[in-house]
Nucleic acid binder design. Structure first.
Length: 716
DNA sequence: CTGAAGGCTAC
DNA sequence: TCTCGTAGCCTTCAG
């Protein structure tokens, strides 16, 4: 029997505006037709443009998806039915519910082609499509060549007539490692389908066999793996799946067909890994990569005066190889600057403008083009500049980007807490009091035991008490003023004033959703006296309402409590492995020795720098002295000869500029250190001749010697 | 409900 | 009436 929502094999279907239907779809030659599902409208445009180049509109249809497809596996019937995306796909293909397909003859298309961006989120979308078919129409996945994908290169390299095309980054990385880091080869990156041009599209579709890759017919084992990947109840299985991930894994696209198992284990897994990396913070600095990129960019730009958030977003993108949407990035910047109760205890950025309030939990922030930010002094106190030189900076496309992690002077993951949802893993860490944290650091320094810490939120006036080992009760404040009046002056952390007001509104009208029911009303009227940082409701109670409230207790009656659990505190540890922490003290215990190590590294680095400066000044002093004593003649000599002379006299070369390119090998560096280029002697030769006049020499020489002497005793 | 991601629709 | 910018919405993922 046909269900109302089933598709049907019709030649023409209407009501799906974005569908570019194949001319032959649903007709005699329907089995020769391919429906291309694209990731968004711009990819659809690319496909349509490519089809134009090969006159493909008879046999190819195109339909754009809107980002992440519904995971139908555990979705409610209601949610599936009202999901426009799913319903459209059913209509376009002519899918019949519960039909056991032996062939594609009853469908409007004989083949489905997935065309997503060649990135991790694109892999996720492919997975969600496969999940949809596995769940509702597994028989279709068993038909050879029903499901195919369209792949586009992400890197091309060439040297003369030789050319290599790579479809995955790990594949490219592997090739680079084997080929002298790709030196001597020219390369081009293709980032996202949206950046492709019409000529690219024409090229792809003219050679469609190169870009079309079929999935293997589904085997029984495949179904279990797909379930493992998408079943909501199998997060623990996914943890195990991710634990055995081997770095460098990728799906080789130089094959005839893709086993679905390989898709899950070699491609989808890369999304899941990336999902965790972007969602779960490091225990070292409490930052996720997106946040770390923002902080790095602010330091790099050496922000002194305020900058528009939208503009900072652009700067971050350019300078840190950020490859995602700007909406996401500006939200990250805003989040770092928020300071209302329940957000950051120490906001790393300054909120100049409307960055959101506790009225709506920050959702009331103004648009990024209206608001400004800056780096508060505190941020550079915590992320100390003296550590910059000893951090491990990452590179991407030859660009030096943010460090693997910062190491703030206090564990910021505890100060500001963290929330994140990845794959298999999620994390939830509450805020703690910096004073408590520092006190515990002191205890560790003295070899004492840490004291147990309780979550703490700056500006919060209510109470937080431990009710279980990893459970805390958070209470707001309600006070009886007189027989008819109750004041509410604090809400539980992260209960937003707006939401609470809606409840008060219902208690006043006695109804829900605009309906009123006077008999259920318990509040006669109420006043609001909030400021931007405090909560203050004055409730004029009905007599019956006051009675009921007192009988139940204000806390319960007004829902003025919430709980914080500390049973899911997950971070990337200092080895880069995902780790669940049992307590904030355990987090501190991981952080502390690394910070100590960094203090000694910092000290060593500073000492090295001072020694270098000492040597430089000593050399200059010796240089001047030799000239005065006429042991060295500089007049009328060529620079080249003079440098040779300086080398013979064992003057040390000092290169100009702080850093050399990192690609140079250690050996080359050391050799250059000893010999130095001619320019490396400019610190001597550049000393202006006028400073060697009779009047000036007596004094400066003494001064230089003095300074050198002082520096020497410092570094010793 | 949280937040870093993918995306479009409607105003 | 059309275009532009964007607020507001849908989706994933774990607990």
């Amino acid at each position: 029997m046909l269900k109302k929502t089933d598709g049907a094999k019709r030649t023409r279907i209407g009501g799906i505006a974005k569908l570019e239907d194949a001319n032959w779809a649903g007709g005699r030659n329907a089995n020769r037709c391919t429906l291309i599902l694209t990731e968004g409208d711009s990819a659809k445009a690319l496909a349509v443009s490519g089809l134009g180049a090969i006159s493909g509109r008879d046999t190819f249809g195109v339909f754009p998806l809107r980002g992440k497809l519904l995971n139908v596996r555990e979705a409610s019937h209601d949610q599936i039915m009202k999901n426009v995306e799913i319903q459209n796909i059913k209509q376009i293909l002519g899918l019949k519910h519960n039909h056991d397909y032996k062939s594609v003859d009853s469908l409007r298309y004989g083949q489905l082609m997935i065309m997503t961006d060649q990135d991790h989120d694109g892999s996720h979308i492919k997975g969600l499509i496969i999940n949809f078919f596995d769940h509702f129409y597994p028989s279709l996945l068993r038909i050879p060549n029903f499901l195919v994908e369209f792949i586009t290169p992400i890197v091309k390299v060439w040297k003369g007539k030789q050319e290599h095309t790579f479809y995955t980054m790990p594949e490219y990385e592997e090739w680079k490692a084997k080929n002298n880091d790709g030196r001597g080869w020219e390369s081009k990156y293709y980032k996202g389908l949206g950046t492709s041009k019409a000529t690219d599209a024409a090229k792809y579709f003219s050679a469609i066999d190169k870009h079309r890759l079929a999935f293997d017919p589904m085997k029984p084992e495949d179904r279990q793996l797909i379930d493992m990947a998408f079943n909501k109840k199998k997060a623990d299985d996914r943890k195990e799946w991710l634990r055995q991930f081997k770095p460098g894994t990728y799906l080789d696209h130089d094959i005839k067909t893709i086993p679905l198992q390989d898709f899950v284990n070699k491609e989808l897994i890369l999304f899941s890994m990336a999902d965790n990396i972007r969602s779960i913070p490091s225990v070292a600095d409490g930052l996720k990569p997106g946040q770390r990129k923002v902080v790095f960019a602010c330091f790099k730009r050496n922000l002194k005066k305020e900058i528009k958030v939208a503009q900072l977003g652009g700067y971050v993108s350019e300078n840190t190889a950020y490859h995602h949407g700007e909406v996401s990035l500006t939200a990250t910047i805003v989040g770092l600057a928020q300071n209302f109760v329940g957000s950051n205890n120490i906001n790393l950025l300054e909120p100049n403008g409307q960055f959101g309030t506790r009225m709506q939990g920050g959702k009331d922030a103004a648009s990024a083009r209206y608001i400004f930010t800056n780096v508060p002094r505190m941020t550079r106190t915590i992320f100390h500049q003296a550590d910059d030189a000893i951090l491990n900076y990452l590179t991407e496309d030859g660009q030096r980007i943010e460090p693997e992690y910062y190491l703030p002077t206090v564990p910021m993951v505890l100060v500001n807490g963290a929330d994140g949802i990845g794959t298999g893993w999620s994390t939830s860490i509450p805020n703690y009091n910096p004073k408590d944290i520092v006190a515990n650091i002191r205890r560790l320094m003295n070899g004492e035991e840490q004291e147990r810490m309780t979550p703490w939120f700056r500006g919060f006036n209510g109470t937080i008490e431990r009710i279980e080992n990893d459970k805390f009760k958070v209470s707001g404040i309600a006070t009886k003023v007189d027989d008819k009046t109750i004041e509410i002056t604090e809400l539980p952390v992260r209960k937003w004033t707006q939401d609470f007001k809606e409840m008060i509104e219902e208690m006043t009208s006695g109804g829900k959703d605009g309906k009123t029911d006077a008999s259920a009303s318990v509040i006669k009227d109420y006043e609001e006296h909030h400021t931007d940082t405090t909560v203050h409701f004055k409730l004029h109670m009905k007599d019956s309402g006051m009675k009921a409230a007192e009988a139940e207790g204000f806390e319960k009656f007004f829902k003025l409590t919430s709980t914080i659990t500390t049973s899911n505190m997950v971070c990337f540890d200092l080895q880069g492995k995902i780790k669940k922490y049992a307590s904030p003290e355990e987090i501190l215990a991981d952080f502390y020795p690394k910070r100590l190590e960094f203090y000694s590294l910092r000290k060593q680095h500073l000492a090295d720098e001072l020694n270098k400066e000492f040597e430089r000044l000593s050399n200059q002093a010796r240089f001047v002295t030799m000239i005065i004593k006429k042991e060295l003649i500089v007049n009328n000599k060529k620079k080249k000869d003079l440098v040779t002379e300086l080398r013979e006299l064992k003057f040390r070369p000092f290169p100009k500029g702080a850093k050399r390119p990192e690609s140079e090998s250690e050996d080359a560096l050391e050799e250059e250190e000893e010999q130095g280029t001619d320019g490396d002697y400019d610190y001597l030769l550049g000393m202006a001749i006028w400073s060697l006049t009779a009047e000036k020499v007596c004094c400066p020489v003494g001064t230089i010697t003095d300074i050198a002497g002082r520096e020497a005793s410092h570094s010793a």
